[in-house]
C-alpha cells in the first residue's frame, strides 16, 4: 500500500543542555503530514516550532523519537542522511537576511544547491535554471541575476531564499515564518508565490507562523504548540469551526481583525492572561494550567493526553478526556 503520509513524527523530543538546566524545546510530539498538504504549526515564541523544523531538516539530531520521511527513518544525524533526502527536504528560514551570503550574487546563491546536487552541467544551464526559479518568485531575472543580497529589500531577499529552497525540486519544504518581518503588501506577494509553487510542484510543507489568519489561508491542517507540546491538531476548517483547547481559544481571541465577519470567529468569554512558562521548569501537569481559566486540580497533577475527539481532531485537555 502506498504511504499516504510524506512525513511522520513520532514521540519526538529535542532537549538542549544549558548551564541553567535542560531546555525541553520539543517534548514528545507526534504529527503526520499527508502528501500534497500543508501543515500549519502555530504557537507563541519559544513553543518549539523552529526547533521542530530544524530537527526535520536535519540541523540537529533528535534527542529521542522517530522521524519518517516517505516511510524511511531519517532520525540519524545529517551527515549520515542519504544525499537524495537532503535534496528532497528544504527549509526557508525565519530571517532572510542572515541566511544569504552577502558576498555572492543571486545567480550563485540560488545555483549553489543545483551544483552541489549535480543537477546542472554547465554555467549556461545553471543560469537558465536559476532564471526560471527567479521567475517563479516574481523576480525578473534580468534585474536580479547579478545583484547581491545587500541591494535587496526584505521581501526580495525572502523571495531569493524561496527560489533557493525549491531549486533542487524538493518534495517537502519547511517555511519558518517566511513573512513575519515583512510589510503586509510584500507578505501578500510572497505568500502568493508560495501558493503557486505549492500547486505547481505538488509540494508538501510545514508552515510555521504566529499568524492564525495567515495560517488559515495557507494550510490544510493545523497543529498548535505550547511549551514543547502539541495541544490541539485538526484539519483547518474543523479547527476554525470548533477550536477546543482553552489555549487555542485564547490565541484566537487575541487576533486583531479588520471586519465584523472575522470578529464572529473570535471566542468570547476568554481573555489573554499570563505568559508562556519556562521550558526548563515547565509547569506540572498540563503546561497551560497557570493561564487557563478552566483549570481544576487534575490539571496541576496530570498531563493530559492528546486524544482524538472527532475524526482527525486531536486535543490534549482534561476538559475533553472521558476518563
Amino acid at each position: 500500500m502506498e504511504n499516504e503520509y510524506i512525513l511522520e513524527i513520532r514521540n519526538l523530543k529535542k532537549y538542549f543542555p544549558t548551564p541553567y538546566g535542560t531546555v525541553k524545546a520539543v517534548d514528545n510530539i507526534s504529527l503526520k503530514v499527508k502528501k500534497g498538504t500543508t501543515m500549519g504549526l502555530v504557537g507563541e515564541s519559544g513553543s518549539g516550532k523552529s526547533t521542530t523544523g530544524h530537527v526535520v531538516v536535519g540541523l540537529f539530531p533528535p534527542t529521542d523519537g522517530k522521524i519518517l520521511f516517505k516511510g524511511q527513518d531519517i532520525s540519524m544525524p545529517l551527515e549520515r542522511r542519504p544525499k537524495n533526502l537532503k535534496r528532497d527536504i528544504q527549509m526557508v528560514f525565519q530571517d532572510p537576511a542572515s541566511s544569504l551570503n552577502p558576498k555572492k550574487i543571486i545567480r550563485d546563491i540560488v545555483g549553489l544547491p543545483l551544483k552541489v546536487h549535480g543537477m546542472v552541467s554547465s554555467r549556461e544551464e545553471m543560469e537558465e535554471k536559476v532564471s526560471k526559479l527567479l521567475e517563479m518568485v516574481e523576480l525578473p531575472p534580468e534585474d536580479f541575476l547579478y545583484r547581491k543580497p545587500t541591494d535587496l529589500g526584505g521581501g526580495e531577499k525572502q523571495a531569493v531564499s524561496i527560489a533557493r529552497a525549491i531549486a533542487t525540486n524538493p518534495s517537502f519544504v519547511i517555511f519558518d515564518e517566511p513573512t513575519s518581518a515583512l510589510d503586509v503588501s510584500i507578505q501578500a506577494k510572497i505568500i502568493n508565490a508560495i501558493l503557486n509553487i505549492q500547486k505547481e510542484f505538488r509540494l508538501s510543507s510545514l508552515f510555521i507562523t504566529h499568524d492564525l489568519s495567515l495560517m488559515r489561508n495557507i494550510s490544510s491542517y493545523v497543529a498548535i504548540m505550547y511549551l514543547g507540546k502539541i495541544c490541539e491538531m485538526a484539519p483547518t476548517e474543523t479547527f476554525f469551526q470548533k477550536p477546543l483547547h482553552p489555549y487555542t481559544q485564547m490565541l484566537l481571541s487575541s487576533v486583531p481583525v479588520l471586519t465584523k465577519e472575522e470578529e464572529e470567529l473570535k471566542p468570547k468569554g476568554i481573555k489573554s492572561v499570563g505568559e508562556i512558562g519556562s521550558p526548563i521548569n515547565p509547569p506540572s501537569g498540563c503546561r497551560f494550567h497557570p493561564r487557563c481559566p478552566f483549570a481544576t486540580e487534575i490539571c496541576k497533577k496530570k498531563e493530559p493526553k492528546l486524544v482524538e475527539v472527532e475524526p482527525e481532531h486531536y486535543v490534549a485537555c482534561h476538559l475533553y478526556s472521558s476518563e
Binding site: S185, I186, Q187, A188, K189, D211, R216, V255, V257, L258
Partner: peptide, 17 residues
C-alpha cells in the same frame, strides 16, 4: 493595503501592490 491583509475567515486576499 487592507485587501493585502490575510483574513481570519480564510477569504482570499490580494496578491500585493
Amino acid at each position: 493595503l487592507l485587501e493585502c491583509v490575510p483574513k481570519l475567515t480564510g477569504k482570499e486576499f490580494a496578491k500585493g501592490i
